[in-house]
């Protein structure tokens, strides 16, 4: 897919923050000494009086965000997913979410595509953790277009939101101006033999896999599921009823993330054969993003193989 335009969703985040900062005077952004990497520095350079670096203290940052929100601000708090979510989980739960405050946790460098930094920095549990918190909206945009939309949608949504962004440049899947809605999945490709539900950078892999499956005579339906919570149950059930086989694909642990959410939905509403593709209950490794995506079978080829084997089983 070398001819496809690639942009990291963290770049989309910085761009959208700056754009919205000009329109929304009470938009305040916090970072924890990673502003250059998370791209909140783009906002900082435009609106220095509304950007605060909390230093390397993520728990404090989340609670400060809660205080700022309680005083009438819309607050984005950013760090790498590992530190924003895993380290500051309890602050997000108790300071932010329990009071239903208007804090948007925008975490970057999620998943194995962090690359060389290795397992200590590769968060594979963030979607699962955020999904357990009452009232939390959880999004994992697929590309630059959806990434920028997610920031705007989070601002319009009253209450806590978690958005997951990535470090690595990923293919642009959507046309500019594509219509999105929180809690609504979208069928990117219609098919009748198997449903592939993906989000984040795995959407591009799923689309690539679907093309390869076609050559094997397997007609795959591909669904982009940016919002993991609230999940678009209706779409999941409708597609599962049609194809009778569902595969989830995510750059996250197969425990508790998109795969977990879809499994919960299907087992209650429409029991269907399910295959969860993702990181199989283990930690990551050091290597380049491309090498790791191949190693963990999350590139187009890896997804293709796994879906093919599942369908033929």
């Amino acid at each position: 897919m070398s001819d496809v335009k690639k942009i990291a969703t963290r770049e989309s985040y910085g761009k959208a923050l700056k754009e919205m900062g000009a329109k929304i005077p009470n938009l305040v952004v916090l970072d924890a000494d990673l502003a250059g990497s998370t791209k909140t520095a783009v906002f900082r350079d435009a609106f220095p009086e509304r950007h605060f670096n909390c230093g390397i203290a993520e728990g404090n940052m989340m609670s400060i965000a809660a205080g700022l929100a309680a005083a009438g601000n819309i607050v984005f708090a950013s760090s790498f997913a590992m530190f924003a979510v895993c380290r500051a989980y309890e602050q997000i739960r108790n300071s932010v979410a329990y009071s239903q405050l208007n804090v948007k946790i925008a975490a970057t460098h999620a998943g194995i595509s962090v690359g060389e930094d290795g397992a200590s920095h590769q968060c594979l549990e963030d979607i699962a953790l955020m999904r357990t918190i009452p009232g939390m909206t959880v999004m994992c945009p697929a590309d630059d277009v959806e990434g920028r939309w997610a920031v705007k949608a989070a601002i319009e949504h009253e209450g806590p939101v978690y958005i997951r962004f990535g470090r690595a440049a990923v293919p642009v899947v959507f046309e500019e101006g594509h219509q999105f809605e929180i809690g609504k999945g979208a069928i990117l490709r219609e098919g009748k033999d198997v449903t592939i539900i993906a989000n984040g950078l795995c959407v591009a892999s799923a689309m690539e896999a679907a093309q390869m499956l076609e050559k094997d005579g397997i007609d795959a339906e591909v669904i982009n599921m940016c919002t993991v919570k609230p999940l678009d149950d209706e779409l999941v059930v409708r597609s599962a009823s049609k194809t009778g086989k569902v595969v989830t694909v995510e750059e996250h642990s197969i425990v508790g993330g998109l795969g977990g959410a879809v499994a919960e939905c299907l087992s209650e509403k429409c029991p269907t054969r399910l295959c969860r593709i993702g990181i199989r209950d283990r930690f990551g490794e050091s290597a380049s993003a491309a090498v790791l995506l191949h190693y963990f079978e999350l590139d187009g080829e890896g997804v293709y193989r796994q879906v093919r084997d599942f369908v033929r089983k």
Binding site: E49, S63, A66, A70, A71, Q91, N94, S95, Y98, S99
Partner: peptide, 25 residues
Amino acid sequence: LDMSTGSLGQGVSTAVGMALSARIQ
């Protein structure tokens, strides 16, 4: 009530956020 609290150590940070907001606003 200006903040929900109970988990120790967090309230003081939220107060910092409120003080910071007064400065911005």
